[in-house]
């Protein structure tokens, strides 16, 4: 347990150090800036509508997946590139604990940046209109979405050298493209978190209902889906680490 915590703590620091973090942090704050500047002359109702037509979309469709892709693919991918996987795997630690620690660090790092962006978006609406009700739902949505992205992108980073390319393909071709086809909507990641948000902010369904497709709104269901997918990710990666050569 202490070893897994050590891996998580070191990995979290490693993921968030360097210039890259400033760039990703700036990216995460773009929706909040757009929200704050764009809603300067709006009424509360119009600002609420604007949030769901613009900044929230940018946060969910672009900012969250890009930041998750960059950081989560690095979590194990960097260990492999730096040849430090053996440093972790020749320890008396079960492989699943390494994966959980790495995944937790990646999720915490992604959530630190994207969550800050979501918090800032909610705060921008609150500062302009006094409506702070979207802050918690935004954080819940981001928490669930980033969890699922991490469950996908951590293994991707370990298995493929071109993980970034494959991940971008997944996000922009599958998740935001092909998965819009009726019937395929439950298979897209962003809709899982979005369903939680709409479940917590029912009046947002007027603006986001079409994006959700056939997915049923609800935070509990979304959280369960997120946790199940994360568990599948851990099991799959543990199997890979046990069966495949580590270096």
């Amino acid at each position: 347990m202490r070893a897994a915590l050590a891996i998580a703590a070191v990995s979290y620091r490693q993921l968030l150090e360097g210039k890259r973090t400033y760039l990703l942090g700036a990216l995460a704050l773009i929706p909040a800036v757009v929200m704050y500047v764009g809603s300067s002359t709006m009424t509360e109702a119009r600002a609420f509508e604007f949030l769901h037509e613009g900044p929230l979309g940018v946060l969910v469709f672009a900012v969250a997946p890009i930041i998750a892709l960059v950081l989560a693919t690095s979590a194990l991918g960097e260990e492999r590139r730096q040849s430090t996987m053996s440093f972790l795997t020749i320890r008396p630690i079960p492989r699943w604990a390494i994966i959980v620690a790495k995944g937790a660090a990646a999720w915490a790092a992604v959530f630190t940046l994207v969550g800050a962006g979501g918090l800032a978006v909610g705060a921008a609406l609150g500062l302009r209109t006094g409506n702070w009700d979207t802050v918690t739902p935004l954080l819940v949505m981001i928490g669930i979405n980033t969890l699922v992205y991490v469950a996908l992108f951590v293994p991707l980073g370990f298995l493929f050298k071109r993980a970034m390319l494959f991940g971008l393909g997944y996000v922009f071709i599958w998740d935001s493209g092909i998965a819009n086809v009726p019937g395929l909507t439950p298979l897209s990641v962003f809709r899982i978190g979005l369903s939680a948000y709409i479940g917590l902010v029912p009046e947002s369904a007027r603006f986001l209902g079409d994006d959700l497709g056939s997915v049923t709104p609800g935070a509990g269901g979304a959280l369960a889906k997120g946790l199940i997918l994360a568990l599948i990710g851990v099991l799959a990666m543990t199997t890979v680490l046990k069966r495949r050569d580590v270096v």
């Binding site: 490693q14 040849s83 430090t84 053996s86």
Partner: peptide
């Protein structure tokens, strides 16, 4: 183990 590769964290 002392691996052949430079298995260290540069930071």
């Amino acid at each position: 183990l002392v691996p052949e590769e430079d298995a260290v964290y540069p930071q």
